[in-house]
Amino acid sequence: MRSQYVWPVILFFPVLLFQTTILPLIAIRGIIPDLIIILLVYYSIMLGQMTGTILGFIYGFFFDVITGSLMGTSILSLTITGFVAGYFSNENKRDIYFKNYIFVLIVALCAIINSLLNSFFVSVDLNTNMMSLLLNLGILPALYTSLISTIVIVFYPKRNFD
């Protein structure tokens, strides 16, 4: 039972390793998909809103200390993202989410929220064109992330045997 809470934390490290070493190779105009968001959304839907929120906090903490980002920004943005993703946690609808493209839309929504929160805390600059900021920091990375998240739908087991 407890392993279901330990695995998401353990899995974070290989995913971050992949994110920082291999994913830059598929960057498009400097934009890379955010696998951490996909992992967080997946586990928030699987394990519930509270676990999603706490998991977001833990992911953000490790992300900030390992990548050298401004401490606290990812913690805050991923905590709120985990909370939002947790809204979609519903035992009856879980399978439906993972088997069709609703999951992609949830990932897109969460990625936009995460990017905007993250950039709000580090780059709030009223002189900058807000539309261009929204597009560059929020929508484009979110689209790429949600595109990659279709992998979850493809590999999610089609039948449950339990």
Binding site: Q49, T53, I54, G56, G72, I75, I80
Partner: peptide
């Protein structure tokens, strides 16, 4: 869920401030 969120957001802001 909301209580946990508020506590964690406050901790995040404290971390952000002690950067």
């Amino acid at each position: 869920e909301y209580i946990v969120l508020i506590i964690l957001v406050v901790i995040s802001l404290i971390i952000l401030a002690s950067n």
